[in-house]
């Protein structure tokens, strides 16, 4: 049963991990940061990641389709599971943490592209996000 720091340190053990943060996308506040911050400044990195997370979380187009048998899918909160941004030298994986309370929180993992394994990181980050809040 990890706390915030244990969760971020676990994310940092993934191959190629350069930095990890837990960020609130409504306010842009970093609740925890481990390792390097993309761009060098922790606060700017958190705010910029929060911007893109908020956009993804709020657009109706990215929400899952309503399940005819069960309305739960359409009401899923957050509607988006994760976001992947890639560039020439790195990957950014943003994983939304399930809202068991008024959470607008996501994990942000920054991976070096040469060493990182995107598929593995995505799966592990999903597990970490779940373990962080589920008893």
């Amino acid at each position: 049963m990890p706390g915030i720091d244990e969760c971020l340190l676990e994310a940092m053990r993934l191959p190629g991990a350069r930095g990890a943060a837990l960020i609130d996308w409504m306010s842009g506040l970093a609740l925890g940061v481990v390792g390097e911050s993309p761009g060098g400044d922790q606060e700017t990195a958190a705010v910029e990641a929060a911007e893109i997370a908020r956009l993804a979380a709020e657009q109706h187009a990215f929400a899952p389709a309503a399940d005819p048998d069960d309305g739960a899918a359409a009401d899923a909160d957050p509607p988006v599971e994760d976001l992947i941004v890639s560039n020439r030298d790195s990957y950014h994986v943003l994983r939304f943490v399930g809202a068991s309370f008024d959470g607008s929180v996501f994990l942000h993992l920054w991976l070096a592209r040469a060493e990182g394994n995107l598929a593995l990181a995505r799966i592990r980050l999903g597990e970490m996000a779940e373990r962080l809040v589920l008893a």
Binding site: G3, I4, D24, V105, L132, A135
Partner: peptide
């Protein structure tokens, strides 16, 4: 709360930290 198994330390820290701010 944590020892009683009601909450993970992560959920408690998250909720408390956001509530403090």
């Amino acid at each position: 709360l944590v020892d009683g198994g009601h909450l993970t330390p992560g959920a408690l820290e998250l909720c408390h930290l956001t509530a403090v701010y």
